[in-house]
Design a protein around this nucleic acid. Structure first.
Lengths: 202, 202
DNA sequence: TAGGTTTTTGAGCAAAGGTTCAAGAATGTT
DNA sequence: AACATTCTTGAACCTTTGCTCAAAAACCTA
């Protein structure tokens, strides 16, 4: 062993996440990163290999945080369907402290050209994982008798995700604030509307 | 008079639109444009002033095309509500000939940093105009007795637009093809579900 | 055909991009 | 205290960026 690193890697990634999430991959320059991370190019490259490498690690952190937040919401909810609705409803509270109201994964997919498949594929994989988690949630709701046996969890998951994509892109607009809560409520109500009344009767 | 321009401005803008729509503003370089437009830098700058100027004109063309397409759909529809549903349903047919399945206005808003308010504002203005057109459609449906008098056209418009944002962002993903049509159908059904049965009974 | 006007060309600029590397600084071990 | 090892520094590199401009080319008018 010898000289230890002067930084905490997680902290660095968190700082980079702020920047990348807000400005996007391409618009974030090494100069921006040097300033935000308070690191010189050599250190950055020694730690992450490249700008793309740093972004990739950042994207992983974002995805992990997202899936964890969803899992917590589900765990805290009284039922799977209630958890899914709560997740949707939570999007209504726009957090101005966050670097961006839009989803970083979506931003990445939209800005990634076809000739840079690495980041694109990574973002898409994370998106697919989240959608799978949604599908698991709907499946659990189905097994719990909350929604009809004929319902298609995979389809419901894709519908939820596309609506979340839309809500968060919409929320990115200036002065979108007031409308966002109402739109989140619409999504939540749609989920709750799937509730099978047989459950209460049976 | 003297030497006339060797190009048709509309054709040039159409070519630039293809590139910008697909790659985004930042990722499109002057070299890319020179090749796609078959123009040398001097000509491009004489005609459009700057890369941003060309993009602005391109964005206008995209917005005009979008609003025109919606107006046509509405005009061809048997009723306002049917027109709105048809517009949503049309999104299900992903056109692989298009440069991108995502909305160029949304892509622009998402990639535009806060420190370049010009393009950001232009894209947001176009988005607001489209949402206003949606609201007009719902208002017409309301006046025609298709939907309840208590319905809020402005809210319905924002809901439709956010869902379209989401659908088109979702469609941008690789292999999203099969799901997109079903999601568009969901949106269309939701609109049709607003239909006031009083109308048929009265 | 000659003149005047506009467009096109393409070499080139200054700045910014991501990246590298040799030297110096700071630690753990002996 | 001295060494070996690792990290940090920051100047410099090469490429690409958006953009400029003087010269050449092409057209319309007369």
């Amino acid at each position: 062993m010898a000289r230890p690193a002067a930084y905490d890697r997680d902290e660095i990634v968190a700082k980079a996440l702020k920047l990348f999430w807000r400005k996007g991959y391409q618009a974030t320059s090494l100069k921006d990163l040097e300033q935000a991370l308070d690191m010189r190019p050599g250190s950055i490259y020694a730690a992450f290999g490249s700008k793309e490498g740093l972004f990739a690690e950042t994207l992983d952190a974002y995805a992990a945080r997202s899936t964890a937040a969803f899992a917590e919401t589900m765990a805290a909810a009284p039922s799977p369907l209630a958890g899914l609705a709560a997740h949707a409803r939570a999007l209504g509270c726009l957090d101005d402290s966050a670097p961006s109201r839009a989803c970083m994964l979506v931003k990445t997919v939209l800005e990634t050209p076809d000739d840079d498949p690495a980041l694109r594929r990574q973002a898409e994989a994370a998106i697919a994982a989240i959608e799978a988690a949604f599908a698991d949630g709907f499946r659990a709701a189905q097994e719990a008798g909350e929604i009809a046996p004929s319902a298609d969890p995979a389809h419901l998951a894709s519908r939820l995700q596309s609506q979340i994509f839309g809500l968060r892109a919409y929320a990115q607009r200036t002065d979108a604030g007031p409308r966002v809560a109402a739109l989140a409520e619409d999504i939540a109500r749609e989920i709750e509307g799937l509730a099978n009344s047989d459950d209460a009767e049976a």
